[in-house]
Amino acid sequence: MITPLPVQQRPRTAPEPVRPAPASVPAPGAGRPRALPAGTEARGFALYVGFDEAKAAAAGTDLGRVVAELKRVLAELAPGAEAYASVALAPQGAGGRDVDVVRLALQEPTAAAKHRGSSAASADDADSTGVVVDISRKRLQLNGETVPLTYKEFELLQYLVLREGRTIERAELIESLWTAAGEEDVPNERTIDVHVRRLRSKLGAYEDIVRTVRGAGYRFDRHADVVIRHASGTPSPDIF
């Protein structure tokens, strides 16, 4: 007869208390502005908000309330900080992203400098950020690097750029860039979509400067980080 061995039970111990995860400690310098030029100090910041009256109303608010709430949060985070708000005005129906229209209207330094310098070539293009569409040299630069566009891709971009804010139908693009130019291989509207897709992919983070207007065509919108360099004496055909 086999006598079963007694089962040894492990002594019960109280469960270890759950220790809260240590609070993350911000890295030295976190939240500080990037390196400042020697002899300068940060005295504040500007926040550009792209949010028009129609969008505010659709969200159940208005611009005045948004400004008041931002000031309230500022007072909680930084008591004693001073604030000043300025509303950007633009013509009704102006194209472009809201925040870029605001930056240009309020003369944000970077945007204003790009806008003022858009009529002449600059030796600083290689060090610039954003997009430079150099029509005089048939060249596109992205953050100082030349983008390898095909001839037709640049022609397409130039056509839209020179008609800023106007929606261009696919049929017009075909007629102007292929048929009128005497091209033998005339594309259809689906092929135009392929050309635009390739162009936008090469624009990277700035692809939204070429807008798709559903059911209508394409449009170049104003952007605060885009510089257009026209050939001397060649203004946009749609600016009077």
Results as ranks from 00 to 15, higher is better:
M1H: 06
L177C: 08
A78E: 13
S236M: 15
P28L: 09
Y218W: 06
V131F: 04
P109N: 03
S201D: 15
A57K: 10
V226H: 03
R34P: 14
A38R: 11
G165A: 02
Q92G: 04
G215I: 07
L149E: 07
K138L: 10
G39V: 08
V147K: 04
V161N: 13
G215W: 02
T191Y: 02
Y206V: 00
S201H: 11
V73W: 15
S122K: 01
L142R: 10
S128L: 13
L74M: 09
P28H: 09
A58Q: 09
T150P: 00
P37T: 09
G117C: 05
V133M: 13
R139W: 01
K71N: 14
V73P: 00
V66K: 01
Q107I: 04
Q141S: 08
V102W: 05
S236A: 15
P33S: 13
A216E: 02
A113I: 11
A30F: 12
Q8P: 08
R197A: 14
G50E: 14
A81P: 02
A56D: 03
A90H: 08
E16C: 00
K152M: 15
M1A: 11
R10G: 10
T212N: 10
A14T: 15
R65Y: 05
G96R: 12
A111P: 01
R72K: 11
R166S: 13
L77V: 06
R137Q: 15
D185M: 05
G204N: 08
A54H: 05
P237E: 08
A94G: 05
A54F: 02
G64H: 12
R163D: 04
R197Q: 13
V87Q: 12
F51N: 07
V194S: 08
P37G: 05
A23F: 15
D185F: 07
K71I: 07
